[in-house]
Every structure is written in structure tokens, then in C-alpha cells.
Design a binder for these strands. Structure first.
Lengths: 371, 371
DNA sequence: ACAGCCGTAGCAAGCGCTTTCTATGGAGGG
DNA sequence: CCCTCCATAGAAAGCGCTTGCTACGGCTGT
């Protein structure tokens, strides 16, 4: 029924071992023999049996890319970039060798699915795993992740974090490329402050994500440095976003998912709570778009009545009206680099971790507050 | 080093066969035995060896999803939806059974990569493959695809097209969910015509894609029905977009990739060629965004000076200013359905092919032409 | 009480490939 | 001219799992 290595061997009048060696291209094979084998492969339309191969060789050509939400271009761009360094012949290299199967796994932000995918990849003896985007800060989940990754790592799977802080004790196992979310957040808010804003609303992402926390910390650091109140903020914020008691959460911060709707509703809420805000910083560009819509629906103009800023600089941000002031993250470059590291084409950063700079993009959606 | 089935069997004091049967949940195993085995699995932290399993069973739990450009939400949304029906425990079902690994493969729109990915999936003996998005109409490539898919199909891989017309002779092998691009395109242009537009520019996608052709055909059909000139259009358009001779391509149509930049530049070109156009239809929403930017940069207002329309109704379209008139495609639903069919949870549509309706969304970016 | 069954468990034969070790033949050196 | 060595090819032993078939009690039915 299906063509096997043995069939090819028979047709080429060599042993299966030789065919295998031709296909894998390690081990010397006489040119004439190789040619004969290749012809047989072609004639028979032979396709290697991946599972059999992986079983015998104890390795596979699968590379997993974990993302929180593939419908979000933030992840789409990174994952696509990573894949360009890994998959198929598109990497411009010759035919043989790097024929890996780069696969994107959509966790939907769920810790369980994240773990499940890791198990599935472990089952497949994946060659590498790239984890993108913010992590969930639940200690139990982090412990489970660390354990899983440790097992993967010592089964020979290369681990790369991309746009994600390394796990507390994973330094040794994994290379990490993390975005300077804190710095970017700080500079963004500094920009607003320098424009003259004093009352700045913040539409944050989900509480338990590292990305959310880091961006928020940057924002608050800027506020604090400028001597501005972050309100009701218990002195020692510590390392958790969790508010100490009731109402400890600053009035000007609203949390929600990283989507448009959240931006819309949170902005309405913010405007209700504090009609005197003159600027709104959103957790990311998508949220910012929602915020803009809310502002407009309330009959206010951007930036004359209210400034709005985003984060990420996704492609559509420049097309918003007015164009969105935001913080540019080199998503494509980071993804590609992660891919290269996963493939062993590039060395991990010194110390295993590299921080990727975030660049402030000042555009039309921010301006000095009205008189 | 690594824990194997045999280790688990030894610990549970049963044969490997029994362990396998417990894990696969077919075949009767006494409750007490099962429990013992499960405990051993847990104690040993056993993870099935995927390749070995696939080899022995001659099937794998991989499901491939091919997309043209994962950075584009159009594909991200579909792929994510498909994955919800396939991957991990997220589908709400119990623990056992549907533990498939849904993987997204980014072809970048390249025919070679598409084929390569298919080969890679064939290597892995994928359980199913979902092909999304428009196809390339090159006959050689189509033939290669048909051949490849035929081989996949009779190796037991289920094939599903999603938002993609079936290949000429693949009807038997595959289920197809195709969008009514032609109808959507037609209704969109009819809307513009009913508003009073007569000179309508069209920013089309890449020439060789089915999606491009179908949307364009819908547009032209509407024009023709209204007795409007599509210009220089050779009578028998036949089945190819390819223009007969030089300049046979209508003046009001410009082709380009499905990206923002193309929309921007094509619009500028269109405005240069025909300053009297009163509306521009873009190949999709992303292109439309670029078109809007160009229009604005030329100092014109939307929709007062020029109407602009898109296609797809991606999430950001409603947030454009003014909100984009477009054609809504139920991307998520279609993707999810494709996933279900791929999993065998749902039957393929009768006749193997279903056309999915496209709904016209009239919003602020279109209005009657001036004067 | 015995034949026949049903419900469970084990045996063992692969699945298709990789890889170590061994075999072979001709070239080069003593 | 014989022996050694390199280059190349083959034999065969698995890799870890699935599954058809067999084995074995204890029941039921007559």
C-alpha cells in the first residue's frame, strides 16, 4: 500500500541502510549510488514515515510555538516571523537539512491548555519550543510550567521565551527574549506628562499577566517620578498587582482582557469615575481602539478633548484616526530571532536573557490637554 | 532515562499491553486494574512516546491548519477557531480522546511552501488537514496539490477546505466550506451603485488568487448588471483574470498584495488615473485601511469626497473613522466548523461543499457621491 | 457436573526507520 | 607481492508502542 524505505531500497538495488543514509545526508555514500537512490525515491514518490523515523532516531523535526491568541496580530506577527526561520524551504536554504515543521499552538491564554500543549509537544519529542507573550503569574502554574519545561529541556528540547519573562528558575534551560514593557510604559506616560497631563487613566490588561503588570509598573513609575498621585496606592506595591484591601486599586486604573471591548467599556467606566482625566493609556493598541471608540461615542474629540495612547504599534495603529501614539515593539524581529535560536542558527543571548527595547512612537492621538 | 510503557507496566504489575489499553481507552480493562495503571502513570510521570505510538497505530494525533499569512487576523481568526475544536482539553470535553495537536502552518502564500507543509504533514501521518484562504490558480500547482491531497486522503488524512474553493477534482476527497466572495462582492458594489456611484475604483488582491478573482467578478457583475462600463474589458473574460493583450486590464482596477501598503499605493494610482472616481472598493479591510490613508493624504474626506469599502469585516473595521462599510465573513464560525469536520465531530456538508453567506455591513465610509 | 461463554489479561509479532558493527574491495606502502 | 587502511555498503538489532490472538478463570445453562 504505502511505499516504504525497503521498497526504495529494492528498486535502487541497495540496502535500506543506504537509502536512509542518502536521505539523511550524514555518512558517505558514493555519488552514483546516491543518484540511483534519489531516482528511486522520485519514481516511487516515497515519503518518509515521520513517526518511524522519530522513533528510531529519538528526535523529531517538530518545533512548537505557543501563543496566547493567534487571532491577535501581536502574536500572529511574532509567530509568523518565528516560522519563517524554521519551516519548509522558505528560509532560502537548500533543500535538505532544515526541513522542520514549525507549528503554532493557540493556548487562548489558558494555563491548562498551555500545559497540555507542552505535553503534546513532549509526546512528539519536539526539537524546540518557543513560548511567546506574557505569562500567567499564578505560582502553582509557574511551578508546573517549570517542571514541564525542565523535563522537556532534558529530553533535548530547546526552549526559547519570546516577549516573555523567563520563569524564576528556568534560566539555565531556556533562552529568553523579553520586551522592555516597563521601560516602554514609563516613557509613554512620561511623554503624556511632559505634554502637561496630570490626570491619566489607565486601561490595564488582565491582572495576572506579567505583561500587564510590567506595563502598569512603568506607567506608575513615571507618575511617581513626576510626583503625581497614583491614588490609594499602598506604599509597597511589592511584586503583585493584587490590591491590599478593598478599594486599594487606584481609581484611575481599570483591568480587563486585551480586547477592543474591554477598552471601550473600561474607558466609559474611567470617564464616569473621573471626568477630569485628560489622557488615557491603554494596555495595547487593540484596547486603545476600543478606548477611542468610547471617547468618540461620548462626544469627545481625540486629542483635543482627550489624549489616547496604545502599546505594541500593530500595523493598524498608524491608520487609526488620529494615528495612535504608542510604543513600538519589534515583534517581527524578535520572533525571527527566537526562531533562529530555536533552530540553533544563532546563539542564545549572553546570560540567556536579552531585553528588547521598546520605542515610543508619538503620533496624533496625544496632545497637550486643553487649557 | 526516559520512562516507557514497560516501566509503567512493571510498576503496575501488568503487561505493557494492558497499560496501552488503559491509556487508549478502547478495550475492556477491569476498574481496579485501570486504577493501578493510572496511579503508576502518575507516579512515574509517564508521557507517551508519540512517534512510537503513531508508528504502531499507523495514525497520529496531528491536525494541520494551513494559512497564507498568520499575521493577518483574517487567518488568525479562522485558525484560532479551528484550533478550539481540536486542540487540548479546551474543547470542554473530558480528558481522554480528543487530545489532538492542532498546528498552524504559515505558507506565506507561497505555493512551494504549501506543498512542503503538506509533505511534512504527510510524513507525520496527520489525522487531518484544513486548508484556509484563497488558492493559487496556477494549473501546475493545482495539479501538484490535487496529487498530494489525493495521496494524503488515501493515507487516511481527512481534508477540509475552509474559505477556499475545492480543487477541480478533489470533490471526493475533501469537504469544502467556501465563502460567497462573488455574491458579497456583488452586493457591495450594488450598494455603492444604489447610492449613486458610477465611477468605482477597485483595488484588487494578487491576480492569481481565487479570492481575488471571485470578489472582482462579483464587483464586475454588479457593474455590468447596472449597465456600467468596466472598460476595456474583453467580452469573454473566460476563467482567468489574465488580460488578453496590453491594456486589456480595466483602467479602474489595480492589483496588489493583500496589505495596507498596496491599498495606499493602488489608491493613489487610481486617483491619478481617474480623478473622477467617487468610490473605491478594496480587496479586503486591510487594503481598505491603506486606501483610506491615501484618500486622506490627498486631502479628501471620507465619505463626503470619496466612499471607501472593504471586505471581511475584521474587528478593527468598525473602529476605523469613519467605520468601514464592508462585507462580513463569519470567519470564526467557518473555522470552527471546519475544525469540527476535521475531527469527525460534524458531517461534511451534503455534496461535500457548502457556500457560506457573506453579509453586507453598511457603515459610515460609504455615502452618496457629491453633487 | 460439564460444555460453552464472557470478561480480562498476556504474548509476541510487527510498525518503518536509524545506526552500530561488520564485510568487502581496491589503493597504497613496505 | 602481500598486508594495511580507507571508502563504502550491508546485516541486524532495536526504538516504544499497538493489537490480533491466545489463555484462563468463573458463570450460566442444560
Amino acid at each position: 500500500m504505502t511505499v516504504t524505505l525497503a521498497d526504495v531500497a529494492a528498486r535502487a538495488r541497495v540496502s535500506p541502510a543506504t537509502v536512509s543514509r542518502v536521505l539523511n545526508g550524514n555518512y558517505p555514500v558514493a555519488a552514483s549510488t546516491r543518484e540511483r537512490v534519489l531516482r528511486a525515491v522520485d519514481d516511487l514518490d516515497y515519503v518518509l514515515n515521520g513517526p518511524a523515523s522519530s522513533l528510531a532516531a529519538a528526535t523529531s523535526d517538530l518545533v512548537g510555538i505557543l501563543v496566547n491568541d493567534i487571532a491577535d496580530p501581536f502574536f500572529g506577527i511574532m509567530a509568523g516571523a518565528t516560522q519563517t526561520q524554521i519551516g519548509g524551504p522558505g528560509d532560502g536554504s537548500g533543500r535538505a537539512g532544515g526541513e522542520k515543521l514549525a507549528v503554532i499552538c493557540n493556548t487562548g491564554g489558558s494555563p491548562e491548555r498551555e500545559l497540555t500543549y507542552l505535553t503534546l509537544l513532549q509526546r512528539q519529542r519536539a526539537a524546540a519550543v518557543v513560548l511567546t507573550g506574557g505569562a500567567v503569574e499564578d505560582p502553582a502554574h509557574q511551578a508546573a510550567m517549570s517542571a514541564k519545561l525542565a523535563r522537556l529541556a532534558d529530553a533535548g528540547t530547546r526552549i526559547v521565551f519570546c516577549g516573555r519573562p523567563p520563569l524564576p528558575d528556568s534560566d539555565a534551560l531556556a533562552a529568553a527574549l523579553t520586551f522592555d514593557n516597563r521601560g516602554g510604559g514609563r516613557r509613554l506616560t512620561e511623554h503624556l506628562i511632559s505634554l502637561g497631563h496630570r490626570r491619566i487613566g489607565y486601561v490595564a490588561g488582565p491582572r495576572e499577566r506579567t505583561t500587564t503588570r510590567h506595563r502598569l509598573e512603568g506607567h506608575r513609575e513615571a507618575m511617581r517620578r513626576a510626583g503625581l498621585d497614583v491614588e490609594a496606592e499602598g506604599g509597597g506595591e511589592g511584586d503583585g498587582v493584587r490590591a491590599g484591601g478593598d478599594g486599594a486599586e487606584p481609581q484611575l486604573t481599570v483591568h480587563g482582557p486585551y480586547d477592543r471591548r474591554s477598552g471601550y467599556e473600561a474607558t466609559l467606566e474611567l470617564l464616569r469615575r473621573a471626568p477630569d482625566v485628560t489622557a488615557i493609556v491603554a494596555a495595547n493598541d487593540t484596547v486603545a481602539l476600543g478606548a477611542c471608540a468610547a471617547v468618540r461615542d461620548r462626544g469627545m474629540r481625540i486629542p483635543q478633548d482627550l489624549s489616547v495612547a496604545g502599546f505594541d504599534d500593530l500595523p493598524f495603529s498608524v491608520d487609526a484616526v488620529p494615528a495612535l501614539t504608542t510604543v513600538r515593539l519589534p515583534l517581527f524581529e524578535a520572533g525571527a530571532r527566537a526562531g533562529r535560536i530555536a533552530m540553533g542558527k544563532e546563539n542564545p543571548p549572553p546570560g540567556g536573557i536579552a531585553t528588547i527595547a521598546a520605542e515610543l512612537m508619538i503620533r496624533g492621538s496625544t496632545a497637550p490637554p486643553r487649557g
